[in-house]
């Protein structure tokens, strides 16, 4: 392969393994995509907790009070904020996938733009709910 002298030498990745992940420069759209997976898996694993919160609202005043007292613990609030981020990122990135299905901004630049918008919206909304949660 001929290489022009001006071009910086970059590592080539083919069939990357786990050890390559640290050096692999994933594009922004790729980061949004893998975060969609990670947030989805996280929500799946925390589903019993989310369900318990919903159930507490439906069952009794005591259960609601118990849930409420657990949720006032700052450590629990941080976990809850993580879940809120996961829901928001998963939702906003999910809308991006539906827009892609509708052929909206399907290009290298367009994908980068929409990925950036997803990150900005989901993080801004997470900040909004963080204020609500810790206020």
């Amino acid at each position: 392969m001929g290489q022009s002298p001006q071009k910086a030498q970059r590592a080539e990745f083919r069939n990357i393994g786990i050890s390559d992940l640290r050096n692999y420069r994933l594009p922004l759209a790729g980061k949004v995509s893998i975060l969609h997976r990670i947030s989805g898996l996280g929500l799946f694993l925390f589903l019993p907790l989310i369900m318990a919160l919903i159930v507490s609202v439906f069952t009794s005043e005591q259960k609601f009070a118990t849930a409420h007292s657990i949720l006032t613990n700052p450590l629990v609030k941080i976990i809850l904020l993580g879940l809120i981020w996961a829901i928001l990122h998963h939702a906003v990135a999910g809308i991006r996938y539906i827009l892609i299905d509708l052929h909206y901004k399907v290009s290298k630049e367009g994908g980068h733009q929409t990925a950036l918008v997803v990150l900005i919206i989901s993080l801004a909304l997470t900040a909004l709910f963080a204020v609500k949660l810790f206020a």
């Binding site: 318990a52 919903i54 159930v55 439906f58």
Partner: peptide, 14 residues
């Protein structure tokens, strides 16, 4: 099993 368990727990309460 995880999903069905969560769903039954939630649906029962609702």
């Amino acid at each position: 099993l995880w999903l069905l368990g969560c769903a039954l727990y939630g649906i029962g309460a609702v």
